[in-house]
Every structure is written in structure tokens, then in C-alpha cells.
Amino acid sequence: MSTRHILLGLLASGPSHGYDLKRRHDERFPQARPLAYGQVYTTLQRLVRNGLAEVDGTASDGGPERTAYRATEEGVRELARWAAQIVPPAPFVTNELFTKVVVAILTGGDADAYLLAQRAAHMCRVRELGALKTASGSDLTTVLSAEYALAHLDADLRWMTATAAQLTSLAAEVCPT
């Protein structure tokens, strides 16, 4: 995930100060790790240095002085270039779930029991995301994020089902009798 492009995207809708950008990031990307204020201000400084953003002004509004930033024309063009780039699909996806099943098969562990327990955990998360997605007041970002996560959980569940059906033959390949 590109923090600089996310901040440029948030600035594209109009000038904002760092505090507001951090808040909007955390609202719009609820499943992502929240940004640290230091990361926001460091990224804003780099955007200004690189000519992608500029200071729009400062105001105190009775509180601490806040600097507002806005995207420059070059920043808007950079954002459009980045947004148009196709993300190449990963040639192979390896995650902890896959690794634990392979290790269980290689070591004679109970891969079937692990898959059953992991399936139960996945199904619990599917129910949570389904409820979040359909809850009244769910905003578009929350719904899209839940749908994205649900699609990945569905793929994991299908992989677990296919793998569980092959465990006997997979174990025989590893430890032929």
C-alpha cells in the first residue's frame, strides 16, 4: 500500500491538514493499520519536497496552528498514473495457513484436524464480516472492505476443502509405505 498515493488521493478532494488526513485515512481504510501522525507529516513533507503537494495555508482556529496541504497539478497527474497501473497478480501466494498445512503433512501431523479448526475460525470471520456488511449505517468503504475480505476468505475455504480431500494422497507422496 502506498501511503503517499493514499494521501494524494485524500488531498485530491481539497486541502486538508495532517490531522484530518490521518482521520480520513483511518475511516476510509478501516481494515488497514492506522497511520501514525509522524508518518502522515513525514509523507506530506516528501510530497511537498517532490512537488506533488504544496502548503495551502495555516490557521489556528483558536487551537494549535495547523498547516493545510493541497495536491499540485503534478500530484494529481502522479495520482492518476498510479491509479491506472495494473497490479500484477502474484505468481504464487504463500501464507501461514498454507505453510502450516504443508508442515503438518511433512511431519506426520494432523493436517485434517488443523484444517477443520481453521475452517471454523474462517467461518466465524465470514459471519462477522457478513453482519458488518449488512449492518445499518455501514458506509461504502466498510462494505467494500468486507466484500474484499470475504472473497479472500472464500478462496481460503475452497482451498481448505480441496486440500482436505487430498490429504491421504498428499501424505502418501511424502511418506510412501
Rank of each mutant, 00 (worst) to 15 (best):
G9M: 02
L10I: 04
L10Q: 05
L11K: 00
L11V: 01
A12K: 05
G18L: 00
D20T: 14
K22E: 04
R23Y: 08
H25R: 09
R28V: 15
P30A: 03
A32P: 03
A32M: 13
R33H: 07
R33S: 08
Y37R: 07
V40L: 00
Y41L: 07
T43Q: 02
L44T: 01
R46M: 07
G51Q: 08
A53N: 02
A53D: 04
A53Y: 00
D56P: 00
G57S: 01
T58K: 15
T58R: 15
T58S: 13
S60P: 03
D61H: 11
E65N: 08
R66E: 11
T67N: 00
T67K: 00
A71N: 01
T72A: 01
G75T: 00
G75E: 00
V76H: 12
R77D: 05
L79T: 06
W82S: 09
Q85S: 10
P88Q: 10
P89A: 13
A90R: 14
A90F: 08
P91W: 03
F92V: 14
F92N: 07
T94M: 09
F98D: 13
V102L: 11
T107M: 04
G109W: 03
D110H: 04
D110L: 04
A111C: 09
D112F: 03
A113Y: 06
A113L: 11
Q118K: 15
R119E: 11
A120L: 09
A121F: 05
A121T: 14
R125W: 12
E128L: 12
E128Q: 14
E128W: 11
L129R: 06
L129N: 10
L132S: 10
L132K: 13
L132N: 05
T134W: 13
T134Y: 13
G137L: 09
G137C: 06
S138C: 08
S138H: 07
D139N: 15
D139H: 09
L140T: 09
T142W: 05
A149D: 10
A149R: 10
A149G: 02
L150W: 04
L150C: 02
L150Y: 03
D156I: 08
A164G: 13
A165N: 11
T168H: 10
L170W: 04
E173N: 09
